[in-house]
């Protein structure tokens, strides 16, 4: 079954984000061919207009390259991939900090909390993270 889409972000954007996450996690490698329009349409149950916008979005983010007549490929440009990794990191931090601030935590409390979490993690939870 296709993944469900949630929230207010357009569906093409949500799919582009999923693909970016897969690239950063290494599930899709630099230079890999991305699915065809039809494959992605079937996978997510979206129409080809949406898939084309996904690929336009990835192209604009310098994450993918179109090779004429062959399809769309993940970029092999390491600088662009590093930028993507950095951008995803910043996005996650931003949304985490926003949530924490809404609950009334100060920057010091947040930083301290993260520090302590990792200190604890070295004793207990580190192995899970490494898996």
């Amino acid at each position: 079954m296709a993944d469900k889409f949630t929230g207010k972000a357009p569906i093409y954007y949500q799919i582009a984000q999923k693909i970016c996450n897969q690239i950063v996690r290494g599930e899709i490698k630099p230079g890999d061919k991305l699915p065809s329009v039809r494959e992605l349409a079937v996978q997510y149950g979206v129409n080809p207009n949406t898939v084309k916008r996904v690929y336009m979005e990835l192209d604009q983010m310098d994450v993918s390259e179109v090779h004429r007549g062959q399809g769309t490929f993940v970029t092999e440009n390491q600088q662009h991939l590093d930028e993507l990794r950095e951008r995803l990191k910043q996005d996650k931090i931003r949304s985490f900090v926003l949530d924490m601030k809404e609950m009334g935590f100060t920057p010091d409390e947040i930083a301290m909390g993260i520090q302590l979490y990792f200190n604890d993690g070295i004793e207990g939870g580190e192995k899970q993270d490494e898996s």
Binding site: A41, V46, N47
Partner: peptide, 25 residues
Amino acid sequence: LVAFVDPSEQTVVITTHEVSEIEPA
């Protein structure tokens, strides 16, 4: 439907009251 519709050539109009599955399409 999504595998074979070609929006560059065709427009599709679908009636339904099952909106949850069709929405992404």
